[in-house]
């Protein structure tokens, strides 16, 4: 009898099974499990909310926390490519993003927002993921420019990730190549608007459903 050596069954990478781009995006838009506050905090706020009349407390707390969060969104200074120059212009004298309460900060540990400004390459994607993981919750990501949205003019290149949403979840997409600072400011205002509509104390809101 012939004895066959056991062949290790390596599961195929998950992207191989996904035909549809929409399905892929859906998968990557799902938040990771630990992307929220502690379970004690969750259950406490849940309890207050379900108590008769308790919704007043959670709503007031919500609006206060959301106001505080949206008024001090600190972006990490993370420049990738051409869009980083426009991002610097947005942070600097004429457009002055500090009037929105945003202070560009050089450490991901103290930041809430990552502006992915430019082309994400295959060599850079693990680093980007790690920097995103280093940021404390709650955190947001703005994809700036065509390259970060979908690969842009370099979409067909062998070394380009076709959209940063295949690596990290994205809240606001800013189109343009590169987007002028006005566009980025508009995107940041949209993000603040999104933060202001968080539901239930401490919970991370799902991203807005895409409207085509």
């Amino acid at each position: 009898m012939e004895i066959k050596p056991p062949i290790p069954q390596v599961p195929a990478p998950i992207w191989r099974n996904i035909k549809d781009l929409q399905e892929w995006e859906q998968l990557h838009q799902r938040r990771p499990e630990d992307d929220k506050h502690s379970s004690l905090f969750e259950s406490l706020t849940e309890g207050i909310h379900s108590f008769p009349g308790g919704f007043v407390v959670t709503t007031v707390a919500d609006s206060f926390l959301n106001w505080a969060r949206k008024s001090s969104v600190w972006p990490v200074t993370f420049g990738l490519a051409c869009c980083a120059i426009e991002m610097m212009a947005t942070f600097a004298s004429r457009f002055d993003v500090e009037r929105l309460g945003m202070v560009p900060w050089a450490s991901p540990r103290h930041s809430d927002l990552m502006v992915v400004s430019g082309t994400v390459t295959i060599k850079m994607a693990p680093m980007l993921e790690r920097i995103y993981d280093q940021m404390p919750d709650p955190k947001w990501a703005v994809s700036m420019g065509s390259c970060a949205n979908s690969g842009g003019p370099f979409r067909h290149g062998y070394h380009v990730v076709k959209g940063v949403d295949r690596v990290i979840p994205v809240d606001v997409y800013v189109p343009g190549c590169p987007p002028p600072p006005e566009s980025l400011l508009n995107g940041l205002l949209l993000l603040q608007d999104q933060i202001a509509h968080f539901k239930r104390t401490g919970k991370r809101a799902a991203p807005n459903p895409k409207v085509d």
Partner: peptide, 9 residues
């Protein structure tokens, strides 16, 4: 980290 395949494209 920013190799965007210019020469091939």
């Amino acid at each position: 980290y920013l190799h965007r395949c210019h020469e091939k494209l």
